[in-house]
C-alpha cells in the first residue's frame, strides 16, 4: 500500500470516523489539516481541487482520492472480513447501517455543528426531533441485539457499521442529549471505547 494521506479537520466528526478506523486498524496516515472553522478552507479553490464537492475527510489510498467518511471507511474495510463481512446477509446489514449513517443520522451531526458553531438554541426544532428520532432507532436496535446476546450492530464483533455510527452517539451531549436517555447506546459506546487502538476526539472524554 502506498502512503495513506488524510485531509482532516480535528473537530469534524466525519474526519474522526476515519481517524478512529485508521487507529483501530493500526494504520498511519499523513494528515493534512483543513481549516474549516473559522477558515472556511473547505470552499477554497485549493481544497476543491482535491474534493470537488467540498466533502471532508479525503483519504488518498492506493493513489485514489476518496471523498467523504462513508467512502473512506469502505475503502479501508475492503478485504478485511472482520470489519466488512463477506456473507451477503451480514454485508447487507452493514450496508443498511452505513446508509443510515449517511442519511437520517446526519441530523445529529447538523445539530452538533449548529450548537457548537452556529449558535442554535435548545428549542424543539424539526432538526432536533429528527436527530433524537435517529438516535432512538440505534437505541432500539441495540436493545433487541442485546436481548439475543449481541453487543454490536451486526454480528458477533465490531464492523465498519459500528465505526460509522459511533460519533453520533458519543458526541450527543454536545447538542444537549444525555446518555442517560439511551442506556443501550451508553453501553455500546463503552464497548467501542474498549477496542484496542481506540482514540478520542474533542468532546469524547479520555476516561469512561
Amino acid at each position: 500500500m502506498s502512503e495513506l494521506v488524510l485531509h482532516d479537520d480535528e473537530l469534524d466528526e466525519d474526519c474522526y470516523r476515519v481517524r478512529l478506523f485508521l487507529s483501530l486498524l493500526g494504520l498511519e496516515a499523513r494528515r493534512v489539516a483543513v481549516d474549516v472553522v473559522p477558515g472556511g478552507a473547505q470552499d477554497s479553490p485549493g481544497f476543491r481541487a482535491v474534493s470537488p464537492a467540498g466533502l471532508l475527510p479525503v483519504l488518498r489510498i492506493d493513489g485514489q482520492m476518496v471523498c467523504g467518511a462513508g467512502g473512506a471507511l469502505l475503502a479501508l474495510a475492503h478485504g478485511r472480513p472482520a470489519w466488512l463481512p463477506e456473507v451477503r446477509a451480514d454485508f447487507a446489514r452493514v450496508a443498511h447501517w452505513l446508509q443510515f449513517a449517511a442519511g437520517p443520522l446526519r441530523a445529529t451531526l447538523l445539530m452538533r455543528r449548529a450548537c457548537l458553531f452556529g449558535g442554535a438554541g435548545d428549542g424543539q426544532s424539526a432538526r432536533r426531533r429528527a436527530a433524537v428520532g435517529a438516535l432512538r432507532i440505534m437505541e432500539d436496535h441495540l436493545v433487541h441485539r442485546r436481548l439475543e446476546g449481541g453487543a454490536w450492530f451486526v454480528g458477533d464483533g465490531p464492523t465498519v457499521a459500528d465505526i460509522a455510527l459511533f460519533p453520533a452517539a458519543a458526541l450527543c451531549r454536545d447538542w444537549g442529549e444525555e446518555y442517560s436517555a439511551y442506556p443501550a447506546l451508553r453501553r455500546w459506546v463503552r464497548a467501542v471505547r474498549g477496542l484496542p487502538g481506540f482514540v478520542t476526539m474533542p468532546g469524547i472524554p479520555d476516561y469512561g
Binding site: P104, R129, R136
Partner: peptide, 10 residues
C-alpha cells in the same frame, strides 16, 4: 404532542 420522527433533514 411530541413526535420524534427520523428522516432526512437539511
Amino acid at each position: 404532542g411530541q413526535v420524534f420522527l427520523a428522516g432526512v433533514v437539511a
